[in-house]
């Protein structure tokens, strides 16, 4: 979370609402504060997983196969006797990494394309937005599934798939804003002073779109974590023995019928709580930064 809350400081400052006003409004959202705190703890736990995890996530305890939670294994063990708590801790690294990098890549690509399209207009705009239309024609996860089907399963391909899936969303958002911003007086003033195209786009248009980009960014992380976990769940993610939350759920199926409830409950709850925290944070950011945006 540290990586996405620090740009807020930079983003909120040049806006019409000063940083202090932002903090005052944001602090009113108690749920969001809780969510932020949770995400900070989760990030720390993910970073410190090798030191915090009581067991090696791949080590099997042959004396405790699929055993329910007890004092030695807090969340129980899976069918191979691996400690579920340790695997969830290591899984947090993967889920946060996939969520942040895929939305980050998608946002960078989408914001740049959106700025170019909105600023230049004309043929460039038509070309970029028709491209976005084609990507939008793929409902929801289908594009990500198609990309993974081509690239093959694996963590990096998963990130690429989810990133591409986010590009058109950001492009459309930023283009609409760039379109209306480029006719404002301050942009005209900068242009009349001889500012170059790249200065106009990056120094004058980009900062003004950042508020909604940050809001969207936060909301997309939840979607991306869900999508990535879904892809792993259907077997299009990293190798089955990698401690990824979606993978853990997929392998819980056989045990579930045997009544080993803990194998599916804990990894799923981890996804749920993490995505919920990002969504609560996104909602609060939307209310404080960009009340007009609807999500």
């Amino acid at each position: 979370m540290t990586s996405s809350s620090s740009p807020l400081v930079a983003a909120a400052a040049p806006l019409s609402s000063p940083w202090r006003q932002f903090t005052r409004r944001f602090l009113r959202h108690r749920m969001a504060l809780g969510a932020t705190l949770f995400l900070l703890i989760l990030c720390m736990a993910a970073i410190l997983a090798p030191w915090l995890a009581p067991y090696d996530p791949q080590a099997s305890d042959w004396m405790a196969l699929a055993s329910p939670p007890d004092a030695s294994h807090w969340f129980g063990t899976d069918d191979l006797g691996r400690d579920i708590f340790s695997r969830i801790l290591y899984g947090a690294r993967l889920s946060l990494w996939v969520g942040l990098t895929s939305v980050g890549l998608g946002a960078i690509g989408g914001v740049l394309l959106g700025l170019i399209a909105g600023f230049h207009g004309g043929r460039v705009d038509t070309l970029i937005m028709r491209g976005a239309d084609v990507l939008f024609a793929f409902p929801g996860m289908l594009l990500a599934i198609a990309i993974v089907a081509v690239l093959g399963p694996g963590l990096n391909n998963l990130i690429i798939a989810v990133a591409v899936f986010s590009v058109p969303v950001f492009a459309r958002l930023v283009r609409a804003q760039a379109l209306s911003l480029k006719t404002t007086t301050y942009v005209e003033a900068a242009r009349s002073l001889g500012a170059s195209t790249s200065t106009l786009m990056l120094r004058h248009l980009l900062p003004a779109t950042l508020a909604s980009v940050i809001v969207f960014f936060t909301m997309r992380i939840g979607v991306s974590i869900l999508t990535a976990a879904g892809l792993s769940f259907i077997g299009l993610g990293p190798e089955p023995d990698v401690p990824e939350w979606g993978n853990m759920l997929a392998s819980s199926r056989s045990l579930m019928m045997a009544g080993a409830w803990h194998v599916s409950v804990f990894p799923g709850a981890a996804i749920f709580v993490t995505v919920l925290a990002f969504n609560l944070l996104g909602d609060a950011l939307r209310d404080t930064l960009d009340p007009k945006l609807k999500g």
Binding site: A229, R253, G268, I271
Partner: peptide
């Protein structure tokens, strides 16, 4: 907001 955050495949597993 919980409904939006709930991984649907997990809900399915829980229901099963």
């Amino acid at each position: 907001v919980s409904g939006i955050s709930l991984p649907p495949f997990w809900l399915g597993l829980l229901l099963i």
